[in-house]
Write a protein that binds this DNA or RNA. Sequence first.
DNA 1: GTAATTCCGACAGAAATGGTCGTATACTAA
DNA 2: TTAGTATACGACCATTTCTGTCGGAATTAC
Lengths: 152, 152
Amino acid sequence: MLKLTKKADYGLMALKYLAEHPEATALSAKDVADAYGIPAQLLAKILQQLTKSGLLRSHAGMNGGYALARDARSISAYEVILSIDGPFFITSCTKGKTGCELEPSCTIKEPLARVNETIAGVLKSISIQDLAEHEQPAARAQEAGGLVALTR
Amino acid sequence: MLKLTKKADYGLMALKYLAEHPEATALSAKDVADAYGIPAQLLAKILQQLTKSGLLRSHAGMNGGYALARDARSISAYEVILSIDGPFFITSCTKGKTGCELEPSCTIKEPLARVNETIAGVLKSISIQDLAEHEQPAARAQEAGGLVALTR
DNA sequence: GTAATTCCGACAGAAATGGTCGTATACTAA
DNA sequence: TTAGTATACGACCATTTCTGTCGGAATTAC
């Protein structure tokens, strides 16, 4: 419940790894997969998706691979998760423009929308760089969470 | 992704409904299910679970049903979700005391654990009473609908 | 006793998730 | 030019999780 998928985890791990190796012009999917012991082909697809979303740039052929498309500081965990798992909403009744089919259920959806925003805000406040320097990365996240939590 | 299950949604809706009808000593699972158009038997099981967790008190037999075990103000959305969906962790690699099997992945788990705490905190700050009190302005509902339309 | 209702386990269909395979394409270097 | 490395992409399958149903038992009011 409220879990990231493994794919999203893998994606975050991979970006973190790339951020930790700025000297390499490109790292192959296999390099990263081996480093973490995750399935290479699966990671490849994830990296392809991240490339399509513009978070990575890719290069085929020998000595090819992937590299961050932007500075690690400017890539948020939110973007990564969004790219891999698609847009998310905490409430499950999200049937498009008509809203809930079950009329009254919408009354619970609205308050939870704030929770959703809070979560998104926290994830947006965490950058790949934060993950790469795993000292005390999330002091910022705590702030953000606290602030948003009080806004209601 | 990062979605509540329908069960959790249903549970929240049901508690909200009970909070809105304090005059009734007990409402049956069918009453609530009919009010929202959700499967009665499924809701019954959810309410049973919430009863086991101590959030509801139940009464079998004719004119039986469920009622809030505590004041709506003292029941948080967190408790409801926890009861129905079990404990959640935002990271998928949570294999108990040994931590991740994949050594380096733990470095990403740590920052995300903060996110997890933040989310839990927000959910704890929302009570059933908050859900019940909420009046639904049509305009805001539309806004929300527009945002939600982006979900897959 | 009968009807309403909670309680509980088993189970089945549907959907999401995690992972694999095969193949085509792009690039590099010898 | 050719071989090797790597991305790109679609199809597919296995497993799990989620959602919902069924059937029966126990409980209580009338």
